[in-house]
Design a binder for these strands. Structure first.
Length: 199
DNA sequence: CGGCTTTGACCAGCGC
DNA sequence: GCGCTGGTCAAAGCCG
């Protein structure tokens, strides 16, 4: 976590949700950070609990603890891959019954936030493609896909029945494009730079 | 009108 | 083989 995303060559990979009327800064992950973890067999090296724990009472942003006004109470990571036969070298896709069956190695990680809203503003645009009632849970699980045409990242959102204030978000895959909100912020600056360069 | 959500149907995996 | 469960599809409807 020593890497500063703003100084690296990597575009931001993911923004953690911050639910305080969207006033808190986002938390940036870079592809290299996640890829490094994936190469090592998962994301378990990231100390999510420490990063988001109440003791730290803050949110890591660009290598520093930023605004403490966060509702993120804790986080966890999952290093399992999408393929269910344990062969992590297996990289194939096949169609069964007209539907795509993916056995591709896909990093997944989850965290939970305390929020009244199910939809967390993580900076990316998502399209809901399904909702399903799950066993032992009062609330349905919602399925989202990133709307970027080249991006295959998905996320699942589910509210805990034990503690209705907690929303569990599971991300699957890595964004292959910059965060849209970041680009929205940077675009005027880039245009100004381009304009000044013409002088 | 395009993008998004809703929702029932469909499919695959798994346990028995 | 059957039933259960989770994940996805896709048509219909909604909304700005």
């Amino acid at each position: 976590m020593e890497e500063n995303p703003m100084e690296s060559q990597d575009p931001p990979l993911m923004l953690s949700p911050v639910q305080n009327n969207n006033t808190s800064p986002p938390f940036l992950f870079t592809p290299s950070m996640v890829q490094k973890q994936a190469d090592q067999g998962g994301l378990s090296d990231i100390d999510w609990g420490t990063l988001f724990s109440a003791q730290n009472n803050g949110l890591l942003l660009n290598g520093e603890y930023a605004n403490k006004e966060t509702n993120i109470e804790c986080a966890s990571s999952s290093s399992f891959m999408a393929d269910n036969n344990g062969d992590q070298e297996l990289e194939k896709e096949k169609r069964k019954g007209g539907r795509l069956k993916r056995t591709t190695r896909v990093p997944r990680f989850a965290f939970q936030t305390r929020s009244a809203d199910d939809i967390l503003d993580d900076g990316y645009r998502w399209r809901k493609y399904g909702q399903k009632a799950v066993k032992n849970n009062t609330y349905p699980r919602s399925y989202y896909r990133c709307t970027h045409h080249t991006c295959t990242v998905k996320k699942q959102v589910q509210r805990l029945s034990k503690d209705t204030g907690i929303v569990v978000t599971t991300y699957e895959g890595i964004h292959n494009h910059p965060c849209e909100k970041l680009m929205e912020t940077l675009t005027p600056l880039l245009k100004q730079i381009q304009f000044l360069a013409t002088l």
